[in-house]
Each structure stands twice: as structure tokens, then as C-alpha cells.
Simulated assay, not measured.
Amino acid sequence: MARRRSRPLSIIALSGIAILCIIYFLSSSHSSSKARVRPPPAPGGAKSIVHHQMDGLTSSYRPLAHKERVLILTPITRFYDEYWNNLVNLNYPHDLIELGFILPRGREANQAIQRLDEAVNALQTGPKKNRFSKVTILRQDFDSPFSQSEKDRHALSSQKDRRAAMARARNSLFSTTITPTTSWILWLDADIVETPATLIQDLTAHNKPIVVANCYQRYVDHGESKIRPYDFNTWQDSEAAQKMGQMMGEDDVIFEGYSEMSTQRKQLAHMYAPGKDVNEEVAVDGVGATALMVKAEVHRDGAMFPSFPFYHLLETEGFARMAKRLGYQAYGLPNYLVYHYNE
């Protein structure tokens, strides 16, 4: 009798165990299925690899047709509304333009970065058609070693330290902001307050590796509006300057535009002929960077702004010499004018 009573209990127990096993295997199978569909993200992996076809990147005389991206770079210590308004009014599509700025440490630069931040934020939160593709603002880890007054900036005694500091800033700026999609780099000084709205199209149309506009300055003389040459860093070399360099020590630098150094170089600033062809080109050996258009490949190939004496040249003039050693000829546009702020 006892055995008969225990059989139903055994059957119930076995049935319960079987049901539990089925539930376990079903739940285990469901979980593993979910794990295969949604694997946890792993560090790195295929999605972190980006391919860029650099052989398809162009920098041509028709940048709009090829949707070529332009990087506009500006070292800045003072913020001028006229500079910003002129920049915003450039009519190359803003979605193909990236901006890069670099500022030194110091009180004056603190004020400039505040105004720059305000201007950038207002523009980038405004109408979409006016926004630039990207804006990068860098802060140097060293102070500006010179006064920002026009008189002090251009004193011969301050040139070596000033130009070396500018070279360091420019190198930091382009090396940080250039991307695999950059076709052109436009160096535009922070005190350039007037250019044609077609500046980018005009300079790229020459399809030169390096091309620079002629920088002048507007002023008033006895109630009459006039213009005068401003930037003297773009020039054609001379035998006198070459002989001067041969007699110098390796750390000495030749600076253009000073009576103390009679280089006899032919300066772009003095080649301007009113009413003549604005597209005229002349080969040059030194360049300024008030409005300097450079094919990005020139920088990618290693041309930078020497902060040390390079063939007795510094910064932008040294850049032109370095680029030429790499096989890139620079050109100036004597009759294409841009204008510098007049203090």
C-alpha cells in the first residue's frame, strides 16, 4: 500500500523538475539570442577606423565646382569688428569654410577672446546659411612678447622676438586645425578689415600653391581719402640682400622695410599700378600673410613658419623660402588690394 501511494508523488516531482529544466533552457536560449543581436560595445573596433581617400582631394581653380573646403586661419591679439564683419561677408559657401584662431596669454588677449566668443556664438546660433562649418579657438601657453601698438610692433628692435613668436603661433594653429579634407588654407590677419567678398574665389582662381594679395591701408590726408602701402614682407630677392646674408652670422635675420637694412629687394607693395589688371601675377621670394592663400598640400609636405633664422629669414618670409626648397613657387598679386586697419 505504501508503494502505491508514493508513485503519484514521484510522478509530480519528476514533472516539476522537467518543467523547471524547460524554463531554464528557454530563458538561457533567449538571453544568448539577445546577446548576439546587441553585443556590448568594445573599445576600438571597426567603427573607430576612418578612411580618407587623399588621392581624390583637389585644390583647383574651381573650388566651388569641386566643393573644396577652405580653412581660414588667424592669429589674433586684438578683436576688430571690421575684421569680423568682413570675414562673415565672404561669399564662399560658409558650410565649406572652417575657421581657426589662436590667441596668446595676457590681458589684451583676454578681452579679445571674450569678444571673439560672443561673435562666434551669435553667428553659429543664427541663420544656418551664415554659420561656418567649424570654428576652433586655441590659446597659446606663452605671453605675447611685444606691445600691440602699431609703433612698437614695427620697431626693428622687436622684430626678431615678435616674428619668432608669430611663427610659433602659426605653426601651432595650422598643425592643430588642418584635416584630411582641407584643400586650401587662407591666412588672414586679424587687422585686415576690407577685402572683396570674393576673396577666396579670386585667390584660388590663380591655382598657385602660394599666392598673396597686396596689402594697403586707407588714411585721410587734409580731408582727402588716400591709400598707402602697408605690408613689405612680399618681395623679389636682390643681389644686395644675398650678399648681406653671406656676411651675417647664422643667427642674424634680414628684415624688410627698414632704412637700417637696405636690401634693394623689389617689393610687391611698390608694384601696384592703379587701373591695371588685378589678376596680374609676379613670382616672389618672400611673402607676408595679411591675405595669403596656400594649397593645403604645401603645409602637408612640410612647409612651416620657421621660428629660427632660416637662410636669414623668419616666419612668413622663411615659409616662402622653405616652400621653394620643397618645389613650390610663391606668387604675388600687385594690383589686387586688401586693406589693413588704420590706428
Score class of each variant (00 low, 15 high):
P334G: 07
Y61I: 04
S238E: 10
M261W: 09
H312V: 10
C215A: 15
V88M: 10
D202L: 05
L173A: 05
P43W: 02
E343Q: 13
A205L: 05
S175L: 15
Q267L: 14
Q267T: 12
P104Q: 07
L333T: 04
Y80R: 11
I192R: 06
D191A: 06
I22V: 15
Q246S: 14
G249L: 04
L186E: 06
L199D: 05
I97A: 02
S172G: 15
R3L: 12
C215W: 01
P306C: 09
D277R: 09
H66A: 09
D161M: 13
S172Y: 07
S262I: 14
P8Q: 07
E317Y: 00
A167Y: 07
R170T: 12
A122D: 07
D189E: 15
L313R: 15
T125F: 08
T58R: 12
Q124F: 06
I113W: 03
A273I: 14
A323V: 07
R321I: 03
R163V: 04
F308A: 09
S225A: 12
K134G: 01
Y311C: 06
P145T: 07
A169G: 15
L99R: 13
T176G: 01
R153L: 11
G257N: 06
G56Q: 06
R265S: 08
Y219V: 06
M293I: 03
H52V: 10
D189G: 07
F146P: 00
V282P: 02
P41E: 08
S175Y: 09
A109M: 04
A283P: 01
S48I: 00
D152H: 05
R36E: 11
L96V: 04
K276N: 14
T181W: 05
N110F: 01
C215Y: 03
I23T: 13
H51W: 05
R38S: 14
K208H: 03
Q267F: 13
V338K: 02
K324G: 00
F25S: 08
T182N: 06
V220G: 00
P196V: 13
K47I: 11
H270G: 00
R170D: 08
P40V: 15
L203I: 05
S157T: 13
L326H: 08
G100K: 14
Q53I: 01
A197Q: 11
S259I: 11
S144P: 00
E82A: 15
T263F: 00
A109G: 09
N342S: 12
A190F: 13
Q217H: 00
D221F: 04
F132L: 03
L9S: 13
Y341D: 09
E68S: 12
N86T: 15
G126H: 07
F310R: 11
A169C: 08
D285P: 03
H154W: 13
E297D: 12
L156N: 01
T179H: 10
M304L: 08
H206R: 14
Y230H: 12
L71F: 12
